[in-house]
Design a protein around this nucleic acid. Structure first.
Lengths: 343, 343
DNA sequence: TTGTAAGCGTTATCAG
DNA sequence: CTGATAACGCTTACAA
């Protein structure tokens, strides 16, 4: 903020012989001025090279048009793409975003939220998993979470259950003898648990031979390769000769499995069918394109901001009717058949 | 901003029988109060559940602690990772970021910058390529650009030239008979032009047989595959029997080439050596890990914010000595030898 | 070490 | 349709 000489409403008022109030009206309710006076002021704006100061406006009006975001520090495609899509909603809603990257520590993330609150954000989007929704619900502004535990707050998530069903059905259709799901142990309170449940329910319904392998594969590529290698060895030993349908919890891991197979056999053996989850870039860029369940990240981002803005607007009414119950929206995923199942 | 009743310095002042000023001092210069009085105020803060209001502070002090970012709308790993690393510098510098995603249109991006200016950002980080640096230089706040045309403004970039030299040397060391560089036509005013120049200069210096193939591969995976396929056909025809060292302008494209070869031969033929650029995730996740030139994104982000903050601080001095010439910092890339050259 | 009072640049309220 | 004047909540000389 240049301490020197910023042109203010006062300057414009003097220059045009109107009052500050009239200048303010020119911006907020121009129709209340005569056309002629509007023109006079418009000209003065140009003559004086006026630049607006939103900080002053916020202080006076109480409307920041800021939304806070707390996103976990993950290098995965999903969160980064989600952030991008959220930022892009500026075009539709006009809200500006103040972004903090969480580090997984409760105390730090609480501090971030306090800082956001100090900037008078009007709503908060939480993607980070650190702070339980019970605590978030007590914040004095509307909250919407994305793809995390959301019992006490509103949220937008992928329909993970349907995604699990879709992936499993695809493998079932190919007549696999054994359906295997690879995942980590996941709490039922987390949306992605639906992937496991979808898998299990469909297998039960269709009386399919199934197995869930719970194992944390790790995040370093070399570690992932090693852990996945062990899983693969076990699968090869256990289900040799059978047609194997493997639903992997995400594309990154599915790709590790695929690479292992390709390097072992030079190509994907006929008795392997693989489906991933996320439609992340790797699913397209892999040696063979990986069938996957695509999350509609743009839709989720839009719905989340939309839901948030609705609640923010509700608060601005004279007689606000705040939500009594958290709203949980769900976005349908899209099954993408690619080479790892259509070979 | 809750219109109702926010606790303000006035309330605290009344509660403690101090003046507003003293309360302000408690926050900005606590040592100027007696320990006892500090405690009294601290207690009052708790009793009244005071929440700070940075908007008011900004208006009064002129310091927003905001940095604006305009980043292009690209789904590539590089920009998203850079954004993440920039946001993470909050820990060190305390500046908050207001992020806009450019759409490549000058008029829109100018509007974004105006909006940022209206929020009284203290500095601006530009990653988008749309607006020429000539125009950026006229903005009334410090600017730093990252990896784009930067003639008239300060910038931080990867040392692309050295990267080109490193990649080329690696291929040369393996005794390749022909060195091929795949790239698009690039203006010398853009940092990444250095990759081409580095390649050419080294080849000339070492009297190496070289060839640059300029071709826009596209962004859709299928298109890329098709275009790269044509290039590969030509290479196979032209340089059959020769040991080929191929330096591809980025990892995404290098991976396309690698996949094509693997699918054709079941493995990477012995007479192919491939180096990419960026150290993007795909270079590790590919069927064979891809040798590449790693950009130190965290360092670049840090240097950029650091350079910006320096200039911002300079302005706050009583007698500021603004930069007379733009500063161009350069971050050394790191050569990563992986399977595509060490087979 | 503490207080007084004048801003910072808008918007809101109440008149006219 | 237009204008005074008081907020908004904090910082910053200048005093004491």
């Amino acid at each position: 903020m240049n301490r020197k000489k910023n042109i203010t409403f006062d300057d414009i008022a003097k220059y045009t012989n109107f009052s500050k109030t009239t200048i303010s009206r020119y911006f907020n309710n121009p129709d209340s001025l005569t056309l002629k006076n509007q023109e006079i002021i418009a000209q003065a704006l140009v003559d004086l090279d006026y630049k607006e100061n939103k900080v002053a406006r916020i202080l006076a009006s109480g409307k920041t048009e800021f939304i806070g975001i707390v996103i976990p520090f993950l290098h995965n495609h999903y969160h980064l793409e989600m952030l991008t899509q959220i930022l892009l909603t500026y075009e539709q809603f006009g809200y500006k975003f103040l972004v903090f990257i969480g580090n997984g520590e409760k105390e730090t993330e609480r501090q971030y939220i306090d800082e956001l609150l100090a900037y008078k954000i009007e709503g908060l989007l939480i993607l980070s998993f650190t702070i339980p929704s019970r605590e978030l619900a007590d914040l004095p502004i509307p909250i919407v979470t994305i793809e995390r535990e959301d019992k006490y707050v509103s949220s937008v998530n992928t329909d993970n259950y349907m995604g699990g069903v879709q992936a499993t059905s695809l493998l079932a259709k190919h007549g696999c003898d054994i359906l295997i799901h690879l995942n980590t142990h996941t709490s039922p309170s987390i949306p992605s648990y639906g992937r496991i449940k979808g898998f299990l329910d469909l297998c039960e319904e269709k009386h399919l031979n199934q197995r869930v392998i719970y194992k944390d594969i790790g995040t370093e590529y070399e570690t992932m390769k090693k852990n996945m290698g062990e899983i693969l060895d076990e699968i090869e030993a256990e289900y040799s000769g059978m047609k194997k349908g493997i639903f992997v919890s995400n594309d990154t891991n599915a790709n590790v499995l695929l690479n292992l197979l390709i390097r072992k056999y030079g190509r994907l053996p006929d008795d392997y069918y693989i489906v991933g989850f996320d439609d992340s870039p790797i699913s397209r860029e892999a040696v063979m394109s990986i069938s996957t369940v695509g999350q509609q990240i743009d839709k989720i981002a839009f719905e989340a901001v939309s839901l948030l803005v609705e609640q923010m607007n509700e608060r601005k009414k004279r007689r606000p009717t705040p939500l009594t119950e958290p709203v949980h929206k769900v976005v349908t995923p899209v099954l993408l058949r690619r080479e790892t199942t259509e070979h």
